[in-house]
Amino acid sequence: MIIISSSETASIRTEQDVARLLHRIKAVAADTGLGTVSQTKLMTAASELARNMLFYANEGVSYLEQISQGTKVGIRLTFIDHGPGIPDVDLAMQDGYTTNPQSLGLGLPGARRLVNEFAIISTVGKGTTVTVITWKL
């Protein structure tokens, strides 16, 4: 069972919102005791996911939670948007797949490699929700 010990939410509409969110993640992750490398990985994953929301869905909401499960503590981030959704999630999760010719298509698969747990649910026409967890080692 996951126990949430603190939670904050933010709406993501601009690049500055993303920057603010990253600062908050850094503060909460440090408070939870994550090392520099884990912090950096989590912030980078968050940057990818928040940017995707801005770029593909125009806006969205983020949740930043301090959680524990048994003796483990960690950070859970959830990104929820009501944008166009992703028709083929398995495809979108592949390295190099992108619908944006300027991009490298690394955001989603890269974010998955940067965290301990990763879940994505997307419905075309309804939106996308991505949840990631980084545990303190």
Partner: peptide, 14 residues
């Protein structure tokens, strides 16, 4: 480049 950034970039696959 900071060590943590280098490690992250490798994992990201950039």
């Amino acid at each position: 480049m900071q060590p943590a950034v280098a490690i992250t970039l490798i994992e990201l696959g950039l």
